[in-house]
Amino acid sequence: MIQNLIDGVLTGSYISLGAIGLTLVMHILRFANFSHAELLSLGAYVALVFDALVSALVPVFAVKIAPLSLTWALSAAILISMVITAISALLIDRLVFKRVREKGQELSMVFASFGMALIIRNVIGLIFGLSPELYSKDIAFAMILSRDPLILVKPDQIFVLVAALVLMFLLHLVLSRTTFGYSLRAVAENPSLAQVNGVNLSRTIMAVWLIGGGLAAVAGVFYGLSHQLIPVMGRDLVLPIFAATIVGGIGSVYGAVLGGFIVGIAGNLALVILPSGYTPSVPFLLIIFVLMIRPNGLFGEARA
């Protein structure tokens, strides 16, 4: 039970990171972006490539940062992947979503995002093959926190949690202390009022894609560190991150963080009462539950 709770918090850390970008995009561009989870897999695979590349070019970097299985090379690869994934998110918007927006129906964006999800997911499958990949082939040994009840935690998991919390705190500082942060929140609340107060809407949208893409890349790598990389990982992540945005309230960054942890914990606690085969349904049950008792989520506001 306690083990499930701890695992849930750790799962929650990458779901939250993924949900932050999704909730911002959904709020500002007003569409459910079903391809957001593919940014997580893109980020994870880009990091895989650069991990290998950096390790080969600078062998000293291929050393583990004890006691983690994470190497210096992978750390560098994460940063590179954040940049590449952020730019990819922006490019996808420029090449596809922006054009669909301009063609008229905002609702069609949801279809377009599903189409993009199919394309990205299967192109990754074609390039990297359908079998799973790992960042490190070594078996990571878990630390025993307690023998009775038995509670195990891997050093990597602690790192993932701490790093995710640090990133979230940095984002919190930006949103609550800088005028750039205010302008993001202003556009989320009222785009045309933000404009008449001098906020450039298209630049803000670019910033949202960059932030969302960057955080998605980290979330993807963290997922890979905790599990393994498979091309269809986006398919398995899309519902949990949507559930996190709905639980937290669409548009609320803090809601997405909290929602992510709730989804992670609920998924792991469900294992206590449900067979593991039902895990994929848990986010859906959570969505239905929230829609019944508090449709606008924990921090969301009603908006047409």
Binding site: Y182, R185, A186, E189, N190, S192, L193, V196
Partner: peptide
């Protein structure tokens, strides 16, 4: 200065 919603409530 718009008529309604002329400030950012969440800020």
């Amino acid at each position: 200065v718009p008529q309604t919603d002329n400030i950012f409530r969440s800020l």
